[in-house]
């Protein structure tokens, strides 16, 4: 049996924040009005077919036209009134969604890349800036302003459970506000076609209570954990001496390239490959060895490592909690 029910963590119909709830309300209003209009109009049409079939003669006298004109005029009047109601509801909701932000609010910036999301949280000092990827953490009940831009092509950030979408446009910065009211894990996906792996450009959104969020943020501000075991040390060496360090950065080491996602705390992330596979040892090894096999066209090259080397590298990366 095919499951007909979709998951609820990437859905505009299961709002988890006030903006999405407002939109869902508006959608409900529109759907009700639209259904009534549909049933009435289509009903009249079906009746007209039945009558038209029964009629002996077509009737096109002026008298009929005058009578019909009243009906059509009335229907048109009702249509216009209904449209005005909808327009009004839409504008009211639009106002509720628009935000004017205050300097005290929490700001996050999200930068689109082909095909992953760079997420950064401001810090008091330069070395306190949190750089992470494909995972957006939000404190519950707090309004967060997300600043959006893109490094390459146009992407679109869409967290349906929290709000509508906003495009990430190179050379422009735009903002969108989110407020998660229910803790939980939601999923976002790029909504503007951005090339080969547009379909596999996901973002995990973690809405958690303020204390938990603060704990997470504090942990993310730390530099990376130093390798302890032999395998971890060997893994770090491999990381630094092969192509890994050419694109990725790990805070606290010499790896500082910004082409690919920051890996300082990759071990703490829930998913790999932009919300596509879960972060397990097997998946990580598969991704490192042959990323193109999971996401054809991805910019990360395959790596020819011996099984030992690969194992050590993965052990090291996993230790970066």
């Amino acid at each position: 049996m095919i499951p007909l029910l979709a998951a609820t963590y990437q859905s505009a119909l299961h709002p988890a924040g006030k903006y999405a709830a407002e939109i869902k309300w508006l959608l409900t209003v529109f759907t009700i009005v639209a259904s009534v209009v549909f049933v009435l109009t289509f009903g009249f049409f079906v009746v007209s077919l039945i009558r038209g079939r029964r009629n002996r003669m077509p009737d096109a006298t002026d008298e009929t036209a005058r009578r019909s004109a009243k009906w059509v005029g009335g229907a048109l009047g009702v249509t216009i009134v209904a449209l005005f109601i909808l327009l009004f509801a839409s504008v009211v909701t639009g106002r509720a969604l628009s935000h004017i932000y205050e300097p005290t609010e929490r700001h996050v910036s999200v930068i689109g890349h082909q095909w992953w999301w760079e997420v950064s949280y401001d810090g008091p000092q330069a070395d306190q800036i949190v750089l992470t990827a494909n995972e957006l953490h939000l404190p519950v009940g707090e309004r967060v302003i997300v600043h959006l831009t893109s490094r390459d092509v146009i992407h679109s950030l869409w967290i349906p459970n929290l709000n509508g979408k906003r495009d990430l446009i190179p050379g422009k910065e735009s903002t969108i506000a989110f407020q998660a009211d229910k803790p939980g894990i939601y999923r976002a996906q790029c909504a503007e076609f951005c090339g080969m792996q547009h379909a596999m450009m996901g973002l995990v959104v973690v809405a958690e209570p303020k204390e938990k969020f603060d704990g997470w943020l504090a942990a993310q501000r730390m530099p990376s954990r130093s390798p302890v075991s032999i395998d971890e040390q060997k893994g770090q060496q491999i990381f630094m001496n092969t192509s890994c360090a050419m694109c990725h950065s790990i805070k606290g080491t010499s790896a500082g390239a910004r082409t690919g996602p920051d890996l300082t705390h990759i071990g703490s992330r829930r998913t790999l490959a932009a919300g596509v596979i879960s972060n397990t040892r097997g998946n990580l090894a598969g991704w490192v060895a042959d990323a193109g096999g999971i996401k054809p066209g991805v910019l990360m090259p395959p790596n020819s490592l011996t099984p030992d080397e690969l194992n050590a590298l993965v052990v090291y990366l996993e230790s970066l909690k």
Binding site: A12, A20, E22, I23, L26, L27, F30, T31, A34, V37, F38, T41, F42, L83, L86, L87, A89, S90, T93, G94, L97, S156, W158, P160, N163, G164, K165, R166, A191, E192, F193
Partner: peptide
């Protein structure tokens, strides 16, 4: 049948908040 329904979803898309959810 089809066009009236399409027209009505079109009215939904005209509304900015709904469009932001269902666009693309």
């Amino acid at each position: 049948f089809i066009f009236i329904m399409g027209g009505l979803t079109g009215v939904m898309l005209a509304s900015v908040p709904i469009d932001l959810q269902v666009h693309d």
